[in-house]
């Protein structure tokens, strides 16, 4: 139906075209091993992370260069976040959190490069990451606290009569976590890119072309902010869930 959004004015809206996954080499169906444009941009994300955190810090300078200070800032940012939200015993899981954060933030910003592909706009990607967090946190909670992990759903500060009702709500909200966790990230990124695309499509009309250009620039700035904030939110929610697993008591 998107293809039919074309109207008599000559405007063509293909806001979803940019998220299309295509094989990088040749045509044909996409098997699980096929190298697609998404694979390429994931690889670029890995490369950027490598350049930023490994090559950038290779001089081990006491007074950091710019790239090295970016790496150190990212490290300090996540380290402090884990320490503040989860506590000292959460620092064991710092590398996992850092992995998620670096991948998301680098992918988000790479997606803002024109003509590039945004890996984090795909629900499959974010759902897998959210499920990794969800399953990991649930297993960790049961391993650390045993059956006591279920106290997470039993709000001991509420009146006794209300507790079963609250427990049901808590259980539902616990299982909704991965859904909101993943769709928030993918939806934000997808929305930002789609809106940019819609604004850009209006540029075909000469009368509103300057306005559309202004809109594209404004939305691009907004998306820069969203790219960082969503990575931050994904990471801090991971930390919050981790805290729940380590200290389930309300």
């Amino acid at each position: 139906m998107a293809a039919e959004a074309e109207s008599e004015t000559g405007l063509v809206f293909h806001p979803m075209e940019q998220f299309k996954i295509e094989p990088l080499f040749g045509e044909g169906p996409i098997h699980w091993y096929t190298i697609t444009n998404q694979t390429l941009w994931m690889g670029i994300a890995v490369l950027v992370i490598f350049l930023l955190l490994v090559v950038g810090t290779s001089r081990r300078a006491l007074v950091p260069s710019r790239i090295q200070s970016i790496g150190e800032l990212a490290y300090g940012f996540i380290y402090r976040m884990v320490e503040d939200v989860v506590g000292k015993e959460g620092l064991k899981y710092f590398p996992y959190v850092m992995t998620l954060f670096m991948f998301i933030v680098v992918s988000n910003f790479l997606g803002l490069i024109p003509m590039s592909f945004t890996t984090t706009s795909h629900i499959a990607v974010t759902v897998v990451m959210a499920l990794l967090v969800f399953v990991g946190v649930t297993i960790l909670g049961f391993v650390k606290n045993g059956i006591g992990f279920l106290k997470l759903f039993w709000v001991s500060s509420a009146p006794l009569a209300l507790r079963p009702v609250l427990a049901i709500i808590e259980v539902i909200s616990y299982f909704v976590r991965p859904v909101s966790h993943s769709i928030r990230l993918a939806g934000n990124i997808m929305a930002g890119h789609a809106v940019i695309k819609v604004f850009a499509a209006f540029a075909a009309l000469l009368a509103v072309a300057p306005l559309s250009l202004l809109g594209v620039v404004a939305m691009f700035g907004m998306d820069m902010l969203v790219a960082f904030v969503q990575a931050y939110v994904f990471t801090i929610l991971t930390c919050v869930y981790l805290k729940d697993a380590l200290h389930p008591a309300h």
């Binding site: 139906m1 998107a2 293809a3 293909h14 979803m16 075209e17 998220f19 299309k20 996954i21 169906p29 996409i30 098997h31 699980w32 091993y33 096929t34 697609t36 998404q38 694979t39 994931m42 690889g43 994300a45 890995v46 992370i49 490598f50 955190l53 490994v54 590398p95 996992y96 850092m98 992995t99 998620l100 670096m102 991948f103 890996t119 706009s121 795909h122 629900i123 499959a124 990607v125 897998v128 990451m129 990794l132 993918a186 997808m190």
Partner: peptide, 30 residues
């Protein structure tokens, strides 16, 4: 027919596979 590529389930195994590879590589690098 040009709908949401995000809901094209035929690409999911591919995406998930490469995402896991990427995450593992990033984890190892880190």
């Amino acid at each position: 027919k040009g709908g949401m590529p995000q809901l094209d389930f035929s690409t999911f195994p591919n995406q998930i596979f490469w995402l896991l590879v990427t995450l593992v590589v990033v984890y190892l690098i880190l």
